[in-house]
Design a protein around this nucleic acid. Structure first.
Lengths: 197, 197
DNA sequence: CTTGAAAGTAAGTACATGCTTACATCTAGC
DNA sequence: GCTAGATGTAAGCATGTACTTACTTTCAAG
């Protein structure tokens, strides 16, 4: 369930290079991701990198554009038991954040630092993924599971925001204060849930 | 209300250098923050930097150690009106995150990439600040304002975590989905509040 | 077998960076 | 006025980096 897993495998060389590039961009930052190391990790010579992409910036730009988080694998199908569904969502979401070793949390700031990488609209995949999550909460409201007094994005941020904060703390300070997902979901639902219960 | 405002002004040269170093570390990352530019921004010659600190790493390490967010200015004195107090807290907290122009959000990932900067225990100021926030929530529980079924850190993360996520989104993708602090605080309190109301 | 596209190897260029050295300047305290 | 400690200037060194050029190897399709 990796962020980069959904590249089309059209051109193996280009694909592998972009993957290595993103990994190193996340690990070491823009300047720290050297073309030598990108090529080496891709198991390819440095000259090939330049023949394929022309420049380091072009490689990373193209790679960032093709980023595509696996939202669909994270969103639950509604089972009627809202608490169980949201617990599934938070578990999978946290799992995704952790599986990517904070790649998101490290990559996003890197994009803020290098606007040339994200182009004018920003990486489409990331934006789409976020909209998709918001849509999911809108749907919950329409199906009358969640109270509709707040915007879907507000609800999404309230539920999922703490997960980002947690990954940030772990990655940056190496600490992991106790956090019980189930209790979090219950606290979130308190006062928000309609119908059953 | 800046993260770096609380340096003691003992040695003006060292202080200014550390401040510039942190700024550039946040702006451009570890490799991107060059000693030439740090010195220039501090209005000091590059040689002075090396005479004072010996190396770039030592400078940034010391600066990170001395980071000290102004927690006390963010925590409210309890007024008896819990909702108002927490609204004050979230407003000031968000204000602090934004006043630092995403410095926290950009700096933390940089610390994750360069563990040598944060030393073994991590930047003391940040850890202390976080513990202090957790203590605040523990106090709320003791004074029987908040239900004590969850740990204080869990409550703190549920309330403040979304603020981090928001600053992340804004800094990285340039978007700012609507988020109503007051509604967030109310949602948080639902089911957690004891006593009055 | 031949050809052509893609990959590799080897060497090199121009520049930036962390850090050093040698020497001159300034300023506060005696 | 003199000294000491901190700062500035100028130059340079060793290394790493993005990127190039020229030539060779591989290998599948005709």
């Amino acid at each position: 369930m990796y962020l980069l897993s959904s590249f089309e495998e059209a051109d193996a060389t280009r694909t592998t290079l972009m993957r290595s590039g993103l990994e190193l961009l996340a690990e070491k930052g823009y300047k720290g991701a050297t073309t030598r190391e990108i090529a080496a990790r891709a198991g390819v010579s440095e000259v090939t990198l330049f023949r394929q992409f022309g420049s380091k910036e072009a490689l990373l730009h193209e790679a960032v554009q093709k980023l595509h988080p696996p939202v669909e694998q994270v969103l639950p199908r509604l089972s009627g038991n809202l608490e169980a569904d949201l617990l599934y969502l938070t578990e999978r979401y946290l799992q995704m954040l952790e599986a990517n070793q904070g790649l998101l949390v490290r990559l996003l700031p890197e994009l803020a630092r290098h606007p040339e990488l994200r182009g004018e609209t920003g990486p489409l995949g990331l934006r789409k993924a976020m909209s998709r999550v918001f849509e999911f909460f809108a749907e919950l409201q329409k199906q009358a599971c969640l109270r509709a007094e707040e915007t879907p994005s507000q609800a999404a941020i309230a539920l999922l925001g703490p997960l980002f904060a947690r990954v940030l703390m772990l990655g940056a300070m190496g600490i992991q204060p106790p956090f019980d997902l189930q209790a979090h979901v219950r606290g979130f639902l308190e006062g928000r849930q309609l119908g059953q219960r």
